[in-house]
Design a protein around this nucleic acid. Structure first.
Lengths: 127, 127
DNA sequence: CAACTGTATTAATTTAAATAGTACAGTTAT
DNA sequence: ATAACTGTACTATTTAAATTAATACAGTTG
């Protein structure tokens, strides 16, 4: 069900994260379907359960899955947010923001800049 | 002339990089003015000359200074690139934000995402 | 050639990221 | 109630990357 590349420089939890996003977006896994437990998947893949948990927490942060302590983790009922492109877009934003900070842009200055960007967008224009 | 915070989590060469950019942009140092040699500044600051060199190389990459082997390092005659770097970084942020919106990311969701990235707090903080 | 200058390469150190070990708390069924 | 599940939190260990340093090289100047 899940395959990993242990030689990859990409962290295990990143591989899992992407893999599950793809499965969810392709419909291989359906809404509310139960995912393997962190322990079961960890054992199956030969990694620590916490490594699986890290992926699961990222997925929950992105509302791709939801987890209930004691019950399990499940594919989110609303997968509109489960879009690979969307995730990648957010990733790009994160990178660009980091780069801006590295180049000495003030945090609050940057926030105001982005707020302005977004309000201009909402003013209503399309590509 | 140069002051460092050795307790800071910010690397020495980053502090130097920013410090010299500020001096150049504020006009404290003028175009074509000679900078201290990597050895002289290294000794003055109590760090390895290569740490100074790293800052100098970043500054040269950004066309803020220019270095001539055997002669020295000098403030660039055209300092317009000082702000250009920052602008380019912001430009990247703008592009990434636009792309995210185009992919259906909610504006408020995006703002919160970025706020979290920047881990902005109510009160200002210093490193 | 002596005393400068920047540069390149490598090694040592320090710091952060990634993963693992262990213990805790909620759920479910018996 | 308890046994066997579940996710979670916290800490430690391991691994990788970033930072700094040591050393050697090559060009410039007087």
């Amino acid at each position: 069900m899940f395959t990993l590349d242990y030689q990859s420089r990409l962290p295990i939890y990143e591989q899992l994260y992407k893999s599950i996003i793809k499965m969810a977006s392709l419909g291989v896994m359906e809404p509310n379907e139960k995912l393997p437990s962190v322990r079961a998947l960890g054992q199956q893949l030969g990694v620590n359960p916490n490594t699986v948990q890290k992926a699961y927490q990222m997925l929950e942060r992105d509302q791709i899955i939801y987890s209930i302590p004691g019950k399990g983790s499940f594919i989110s009922p609303d997968l509109s947010s489960v879009d690979v492109k969307k995730s990648e877009a957010l990733e790009k934003v994160a990178l660009a923001v980091k780069e801006a900070i590295d180049h000495g842009v003030d945090k609050h200055e940057l926030m105001q800049y982005i707020e302005q960007l977004l309000s201009i967008e909402s003013a209503g224009e399309e590509t």
